[in-house]
Nucleic acid binder design. Structure first.
Length: 578
RNA sequence: GGGCCGGUAGCUCAGUCCGGCAGAGCGUCUGACUCUUAAUCAGACGGUCGCGCGUUCAAAUCGCGUCCGGCCCGCCA
């Protein structure tokens, strides 16, 4: 793992190859004593990693895993593929990225646990574009009739994919692609059907006594009749729980299709008695999870705090004492809240990746997941500007432009995995400013305003301008969605406003001045003159201008803004004509 | 009831593993720039590190207890 990582770490040299603009940002001018300090203190005791993924990678490496290192995540395909599910993918992604940088071959897989039965109707679904829709917008009856069946045996409510499960998995995969995360989607059902689990299932059923004994430590319902295999009923298609006998040689089980209790509800069995192969059913979750570790050779798996005290301890135990394998390196991540509340699809408090990407660049979203997984965080949509500001600062820290040792150390490790490409001369408009630029759809005017504020100059490459402007559309979408203080909009039509006679006269004078042809700075100065000449408060005069152009009492430095607009339009508006 | 995780400035969070002056950004306030979008510059304010006890020369950090929030001990993420 030596060579490649050494090259990667010394980013200072290789940053320049892409755009011919040597990246000296990280070593930049303000002589940084921290560089010297780093030399001196790195000798003795091993410094703590600034990025959690490095810690995890250390632990994985210490076990001497064989390449490819396998990193897994997984969810049951119920309801909406929301941002919370992305913990599973993104946490694994950063560890995978670190290991790859260290020279390992890494396979990141994500299981869709799609042989699980649909237990209750989801309140919300997401269509193929990631838009959230209610149950009423799809054929809810068709779903209801399929309660108890594996997700892969249920039709796609949107009638597009081959099953409910396939629809859901496609959404997750599409979101992973949007974030440029290379993850291999695996269908649990397919793995059963292909016989991938045959051996483990046989092994568990052969040692059913041990299996019962181990699991009974964790689940009181495990009794002498408990058989850790749930066949799919050949008659009604539902997952059943009552296995009456096992034939290890034939790799089949006999079962009775009995009722299944789910919370307060009962999903009725059909009473059918039949025979199922090991491929026509599934292991219960507590066994299935360790079985996945075995058949996929999983080395690392992040999981939510819900599993930390339930499935993980039993899974670890089952892996060692029933399957005889070493469980993967675990990592518990805290759940984040959305707007201060728990993520809940039934309460409608969810957001999807594609929704977020309408508001943020992918790298900002990735940055969110690069933060310490142990901390409970809130993703506050109304304060996305804060998150973006934090990201921008994080980015500047990578290039050595922030006087914050801890942040810089974190950024040096995490930043390259957050962006698709490290480029020194990116332009980042502050998010709220970007929202303000959204007041107009005129691309040139946006650029001009950014130029006026010094974010863009003649040396700014076209690609950087293009990328910077992408934030404008997103920030604009945010301002509109939140309808907040940055939701400015140049009014296309004349707003419904009335003015006193003296203000009206002043506006007419200003119109004449603009019509005569003056630049923005001159118009700005003239506004003061005009207001004085008509003996009106300067503030009031500006306000009348803002009302005319934005239908709001506040706005940009008006003269210079008007100077950028079409003169005819400005003159007509000042005269309240159109 | 038993267990796990979180709680640090108004907000978002570093710092906690391995004890050493309570930190950053944003916001707020004041001042400056012909008073006007994001600002910029200068300065100020801002803290019972959830709370208590203990260990220690020294505790946000370690131990015990406790409060609040979330989660697990059915199924499932």
């Amino acid at each position: 793992m030596g060579g490649e990582s050494d090259v990667e770490v010394s980013t200072d040299e290789n940053g320049g190859d892409s755009e011919g603009e040597p990246n000296n940002g990280r070593e930049s001018d303000n002589g940084r004593e921290s560089d010297n300090g780093r030399e001196s203190n790195s000798g003795n005791d091993e410094p703590r990693h600034a990025f959690w993924a490095d810690e995890v990678a250390d632990e994985i490496e210490s076990r001497g895993p064989e390449d490819p290192i396998v990193i897994k995540g997984g969810v049951s395909p119920s309801g909406v593929a929301h941002l919370g599910n992305f913990n599973e993918i993104m946490r694994g992604y950063f560890v995978a990225a670190v290991l790859r940088e260290r020279g390992h071959e890494v396979r990141q897989v994500f299981t869709s646990d799609d042989r699980d039965p649909l237990r209750k109707l989801p309140r919300k679904l997401a269509d193929v574009d990631g838009n959230i829709v209610g149950l009423g917008d799809v054929d809810a009856g068709a779903l209801g009739r399929n309660l108890g069946k594996p997700y892969t045996d249920i039709p796609d409510p949107f009638g597009e994919s081959e099953s409910y499960a396939a629809h859901f998995a496609a959404l997750l995969k599409a979101d992973a692609d949007r974030l440029d995360v290379p993850v291999e989607m695996l269908s649990n059902t397919e793995m059963y059907e292909e016989g991938t689990f045959d051996e483990v299932v046989g092994h568990v059923l052969e040692r059913v006594d041990v299996a019962r004994e181990v699991l009974s430590e964790y689940q009181s319902k495990v009794d002498a009749d408990y058989v850790p295999f749930n066949p799919v009923c050949e008659n009604c298609g539902k997952i059943t729980e009552t296995v009456t006998s096992v034939d290890l040689d034939a790799e089949t089980v006999e079962y009775v299709c009995t009722d299944m209790t789910v919370g307060d509800n009962t999903i009725e069995g059909c009473g059918h008695e039949g025979t199922a192969t090991f491929r026509d059913g599934k292991l219960p979750w507590r066994f299935e999870w360790p079985a996945q570790w075995q058949v996929l050779g999983v080395d690392f798996e992040p999981f939510g705090k819900d599993h930390a005290e339930g499935s993980w301890p039993s899974g670890e135990d089952i892996a060692r004492n029933v399957l005889g394998i070493e469980p993967p390196v675990p990592m518990v991540y805290e759940w984040f809240t959305l707007n201060g509340e728990a993520l809940s699809s039934s309460a409608g408090n969810i957001v999807t990746v594609s929704e977020m990407l309408e508001l943020l660049e992918p790298e900002v979203l990735k940055y969110f997941f690069a933060l310490n997984p142990r901390k409970a965080r809130d993703l506050d949509i109304s304060r996305l500007d804060q998150l973006v500001d934090d990201f921008d600062r994080f980015e500047r820290a990578y290039f050595g432009d922030v006087d914050d040792e801890a942040l810089t150390a974190f950024a040096e490790r995490a930043y390259p995995f957050v962006v698709s490409e490290v480029r020194a001369d990116r332009v980042r408009l502050p998010y709220t400013f970007a929202a303000v630029l959204g007041m107009t759809d005129d691309r040139d005017l946006r650029i001009e305003m950014a130029r006026n504020e010094g974010y863009v100059d003649d040396d700014t490459p076209e690609w950087a301008i293009e990328e910077a402007l992408e934030r404008v559309d997103r920030a604009r979408a945010w301002a509109v969605r939140e309808d907040n203080a940055y939701n400015y909009r140049l009014q296309e039509g004349l707003p419904d406003v009335e003015f006193d006679d003296d203000v009206a006269a002043a506006l007419d004078d200003l119109a004449a001045y603009v019509e005569a042809g003056h630049d923005g700075e001159e118009i700005q100065g003239e506004m003061y003159e005009t207001a004085r000449a008509h003996d009106i408060e300067i503030g009031d005069f500006f306000e009348s201008g803002y009302l005319l152009f934005f239908d709001q009492p506040q706005g940009p430095r008006l003269g210079e803004f008007l100077g950028e607009l079409d003169t005819e339009f400005v003159v007509a508006r000042l005269r309240r004509e159109s």
